[in-house]
């Protein structure tokens, strides 16, 4: 079992929507291995969404959170935490709820320790002033691999372990959030926001709105939004989609021409007390905030299969269509090389 050391900086930054509007965010940035003298250069470089945290069951994860402060809001000295949402049998010290344990002050570090017990799709987010910090962007994906996971062996490249029927060739997280333009504008203008006025102007997958969702990973026009939401596969590939919702609304996602099979829910295989297989099919996946779903399909004939939110009024950017929670599944005729990692 491996020891995984990862370091996240908490800071602020800016994201861009397809209509050209820029929004102030708070978020995390990966500073693993960055020399101490260079860490300060990551201030203001928050990412939406936050870096992927990935570990195997049995690994020991030391996740260091460093509070880099907000260069865009020097008057604010908010603390931060990491909450591994869904971690079973957690103790408060590593649970990241400031009211019930500790938070990390500006300029300080804290080491969270996790030894994942159950494989599946989780999420992490800051739990300090959560209504503000989550909407502002302090959200990220988290994958716990089964103990026997081996990406080089097809039978062991699974979501839930060998023999669970969750072998996959490619995997993508589909991370759903929304962006309330006024909340972000108020933040940069140092004004109080009445959160009961929350309304989403932009609907995001992996931190981007359509058509930016289908741009490649690391597209230079989106320096703070590194993750593509375009799903690629070869015909016949088993594809695993890891849905996470860290917005404040429920969403209903459909892929035109591709029914879905739900193989995992909230980082658990749906099984009864006697091991009954309770997995099921869905045409439209209905996901509430704080939930994750592991959904599988076999890539069909080559083509482009639109992915969209069946709450169709959410397929807009600030009221203008097309936009919002739209992406696509691009199926190739066997010409794609093997996938080097999630969402790659």
């Amino acid at each position: 079992m491996a020891i995984i050391e990862q370091r996240l900086g908490a800071t602020d930054g800016w994201v861009k929507m397809p209509d050209g509007n820029l929004f102030y965010i708070m978020g995390f940035v990966d500073i693993t291995g960055v020399p101490e003298t260079a860490v300060v250069s990551y201030r203001g470089k928050a990412r939406l969404i936050a870096p992927l945290v990935e570990a195997k069951v049995g690994d020991e994860v030391y996740l260091t959170l460093t509070n880099l402060g907000f260069p865009g809001r020097p008057d604010l000295d908010d603390s931060h935490t990491v909450h591994w949402h869904g971690f079973p049998n957690q103790i408060p010290l590593y649970d990241g709820v400031p009211e019930a344990s500790v938070a990390v002050r500006v300029g300080r570090d804290f080491d969270y320790y996790y030894k994942p017990l159950d494989p599946g799709t989780y999420m992490y987010h800051c739990h300090f002033e959560p209504v503000e910090h989550i909407q502002m962007g302090m959200v990220g994906p988290l994958i716990a691999r089964p103990r026997d996971y081996d990406p080089g062996v097809p039978a062991l490249k699974t979501a839930y372990g060998s023999g669970t029927g969750t072998e996959f060739a490619r995997e993508y997280f589909v991370f759903l959030t929304e962006l309330d333009a006024r909340a972000h504008e108020f933040m940069v203008l140092v004004q109080e926001y009445d959160w009961s006025e929350y309304r989403a102007d932009y609907y995001l997958i992996n931190g981007r709105a359509y058509p930016d969702t289908v741009k490649d990973n690391g597209d230079p026009s989106l320096p703070s939004q590194p993750f593509s939401a375009r799903i690629k596969a070869n015909t016949g590939d088993r594809v695993l989609l890891r849905f996470v919702n860290l917005g404040y609304q429920q969403h209903a996602i459909e892929i035109v021409g591709i029914p879905l099979h739900v193989a995992g829910v909230d980082a658990q295989r749906p099984v009864g007390l006697n091991g009954e297989d309770l997995s099921y099919g869905k045409n439209v996946l209905y996901v509430a905030p704080g939930q994750t779903y592991d959904v599988m399909f076999t890539a069909p004939a080559p083509g482009t299969y639109p992915l969209y939110n069946r709450n169709c009024h959410k397929n807009m950017n600030a009221g203008v269509a097309p936009g919002g929670m739209v992406s696509e599944v691009a199926v190739h005729p066997g010409t794609l090389p093997p996938q080097p990692g999630p969402n790659a």
Partner: peptide, 24 residues
């Protein structure tokens, strides 16, 4: 026209900027 929950290969139409105009 699209059908929901049915396996088929749609023929989406995109605009000059590569954005979906129609899903079929």
């Amino acid at each position: 026209l699209v059908l929901s929950g049915v396996e088929f290969t749609p023929q989406p139409v995109k605009d000059g900027q590569g954005r979906f105009v129609s899903y079929n």
